[in-house]
Write a protein that binds this DNA or RNA. Sequence first.
DNA 1: GTCTATAAAATGATAGAC
DNA 2: GTCTATCATTTTATAGAC
Lengths: 199, 199
Amino acid sequence: MAATTRERILDAALELIQRNGFPGTTVTAIEERAGLSPGSGSFYRHFRSKEAVFRAVFERELERAQRHREEFERGPVDEPQDALTRRFLQQLDYMAKVGPLINLLAREHGRFPDLTSRIGDALVDRGIIEEAWHLTRDLPAGPGHGDPRALLTVVVSALSGYHLVQEFFGRSPADVAPDRFAATLAALITASTRDQDGR
Amino acid sequence: MAATTRERILDAALELIQRNGFPGTTVTAIEERAGLSPGSGSFYRHFRSKEAVFRAVFERELERAQRHREEFERGPVDEPQDALTRRFLQQLDYMAKVGPLINLLAREHGRFPDLTSRIGDALVDRGIIEEAWHLTRDLPAGPGHGDPRALLTVVVSALSGYHLVQEFFGRSPADVAPDRFAATLAALITASTRDQDGR
DNA sequence: GTCTATAAAATGATAGAC
DNA sequence: GTCTATCATTTTATAGAC
């Protein structure tokens, strides 16, 4: 443990920026939450500026996201029918773990465009690629649907939307729990695929 | 036309708060964008405080959202097969129209909890109810799926997610256009429903 | 590495002339 | 209803003692 001051500052900045945004977070508040004397300027022994700490927070969260994704990719997903459901639940779990990064994005997209596009690569694009991989593996005959790419878009949109609605409003659309949501999404995919297979 | 100063201030505040958030928007910047002398304080002849103008902006956007929804509900949706696709495209269009409100939410949820829950009622809950209504009407035998409520959650999540990803990153997941997305989502629903009907 | 003290700028808000 | 001028406060950031 033994968190260094630098780490406590990063924790404090992440927490506060998630809640209040970048302009809404003062250096004084960060110092206070990090256990430093508020207004003392001790912050500046560790970071050059407020923007510098934001970028450092961002980098740390992006690395965490990479690590979560790696352990996620090693997870066992080999069963035939329920594989999709479990896969979707894992994706939701992953989104919850990288929630801080998504919150930073939701608040500050536009302020630091360079960072925004890097989140896009890390979350959405890698999410798409990985989902494509698992869909082709988990479905009996692969995605037999007419437009596999659009199918991916639907899946990624549904997972993202479910997470974000929960994040913004504190509850899911229609108050349906994650497992119920995931099972229904999986059922839609498999039913449609079977249908298109011409059974 | 002939926008009053009050309306120009509301426009300026909406624009700036969407981009920079509430704490990131200064009264001076609002004045400048509204054609007033920046830093003059003329703003305060029209609004008591920065919070007051935020609330006024919010109310105006909420009223606009209600109006958009009313004309939306009067739209003709009576064809059998493509009705769902067109319905989903209308929903996406509606989300684009109430985009400002969604942006205010994404940025400032948590700062004004009373306003957040009102957006939730107006957008998500009314969206759910209306979607339920149209699903039961547009599908041949009604939603034959095993869990109609979870199906609604999937639909609303997918539509919300598609919109928000586009909002945050400037492009849809996997770069699939709205009509392709809507058609695929509709195909999923109808295929699944037929399947459950036991044909 | 943290503190006190403080500089320099920005910001929310007000007073009063026109 | 808008302007100039201004105030009080907050905020970013620095200097120097310990």
